[in-house]
Design a protein around this nucleic acid. Structure first.
Lengths: 178, 178, 178, 178
DNA sequence: AATGAATGAGGTTTCATTCAT
DNA sequence: GATGAATGAAACCTCATTCAT
């Protein structure tokens, strides 16, 4: 009951209407408006986080793990532009408290990335030396910017088609090493 | 008079208070609330955009141009955390109209990046093949995420110290090509 | 619910208070402040206009029609001093846009008056020659001034008692033709 | 200095600009905004009132006096549409206190009208019986409506051309006495 | 005498939240 | 459980008025 699908970053009245219930009914399921956003986020972010952790276990090879991670991220949001909109746009409209909660939710994801990177450096799959935090921010920033660009242009193309180009780009960088 | 330094994101009353003037005074210098934000942004973004264009002309060598671009971006925002906060946080809280104006302001910057990338591919400074848009989003996304991380942790360290690590990361990627 | 009786001319807060509801409640029934005034006017003017048109059809005899018109006008406003106050005072405080809408609402009334006057001239009930517009303005101006005087003195006496004196006055003028 | 010509029913800033002085300067000549309106009114109404009293003395014959009165009224306002606008429109936008002051200023005018009417009834120039107040309201209402119509259509035609038609109308009424 | 930048009270409108039904 | 009419705090903005220069 009361699927939190229709969060458009708008008035509670609109959320209620899109969920097909009365305004007051919303408050039977959520404490307040902030709680609605948090719930939507927990659901979406949780999905990505859970998937990333599971993938890490499933694919011990760092290169494969990284590729699967990107794929999971793009697939999850690509299948649900509405939720991507919330994540890329509306979260940033929220106040400090919410943004901190989101940051906390994302932490496992960042730690997974860190572990993949560290393991890859140990196994020689990734080159040395680089600061793991810098690399993590590059990976996350690139994914984030790619999703945002996709959202802002109207989510018209297939996001998963960018998994390999982005993966290659992150792996090889722009420089010509030869 | 009425320096636009104190834009902390929210009510006109707060902006006025932080600027040390009465509510109504704000409207002697700005048409409306949106105008305040746009003004702050034009100033900051304009600075980055102008600098990037100038740097491109000054440094014909693509690798140097890219490094200088990152340096200019980090230096401009690093010197003014307050404005960085507006750019990284408050712009995204604004409505569609403002975000589109910001996107337009940023276009020259993106085009500069594209030109640097294309030139680098021609001269062999950058490797082939890669999609310029994907590369541009990686570069911009990485810079953006790096600045955001800096802001969210309280702008405590020196942002320009990250110019070289980020530059190297973007150039080499995470992969081990040997 | 939310009878539009309590329009006393000024702040929405006052209108709300006099209607016994909260400020925000007003906006459940009216789009904005202008809409409140327009609604009150449409109701009152509509009543007078409708009545005048109906009377014109009912009483083909121009003299009777004119008398009935004056009676209808005085009776409608006489029964509702509050609405008369709005019509005689507050409309004139409104901006150009509203006054033009009111002028449009009144047009059928003026046309009815014109038709009665023209018919009366043809049948010989009214004297020739006179400019219908001048006559119409005399009739309307006299009615209007009579109502205004009644309002400004506190609506203490019975307005309908003036139907015959005004009717006689308009018919005979002040001059002594003998 | 500071001719009160440019009262457009608007902001003090506009009045000041049209008078070619700074905002603050207005307050050297007027106590407050209400005082500006009152001054403009005293000037205009005073002119009409003075003229009407003088005319009454100058023309002992009631019929002539009435005609001269209408002429004075139309000529005064006809020569100065700006002031007519204030009188016909902006006064009615003012609050109760101002309207009462205006009513007081107009009293001598109304008394003059009353005296002319009473004298006319005694001399037989005007017919008996009619209630002087009803007649006065007819005369004043007709004049007022005629001026208002002239103003609202943009003050394009010559108002004084209506002196005789209106005078005849008021004298003869619409009825056919034969 | 004159200025005009600054003020801040007060107006309209929105919308998250409540509660009687 | 569900409703949705009603609420009222709070936001933006205007403009008559003041006062240091």
């Amino acid at each position: 009951m009361m699927a939190v699908s229709g969060y458009h970053g708008a008035q509670v009245a609109r959320i209620a209407r899109e969920a097909g219930v009365a305004d007051g009914t919303v408050y039977l399921y959520f404490k307040n408006k902030e709680d609605i956003l948090i719930s939507v986020l927990r659901e979406t972010i949780g999905q990505i986080v859970t998937l990333s952790t599971w993938l890490e276990g499933e694919h011990p090879e760092p290169l494969t793990a990284l590729r699967k991670l990107i794929e999971a991220h793009f697939r999850t949001l690509g299948q649900n532009p509405e939720l991507a909109l919330v994540l890329q746009v509306h979260v940033r409209q929220a106040d400090r408290a919410i943004r901190e909660q989101v940051a906390n939710m994302m932490k496992p994801y960042h730690r997974t990335l860190d572990r993949i990177l560290e393991l890859g450096q140990e196994t020689g799959a990734f080159r040395r030396p680089f600061d793991v935090r810098v690399a993590r921010r590059m990976i996350f920033g690139t994914i984030d910017e790619t999703v945002s660009a996709w959202i802002f242009t109207g989510a018209k193309y297939d996001l998963t088609a960018l998994v390999d180009p982005v993966y290659d780009m992150l792996l090889g960088g722009v420089g010509n090493r030869s």
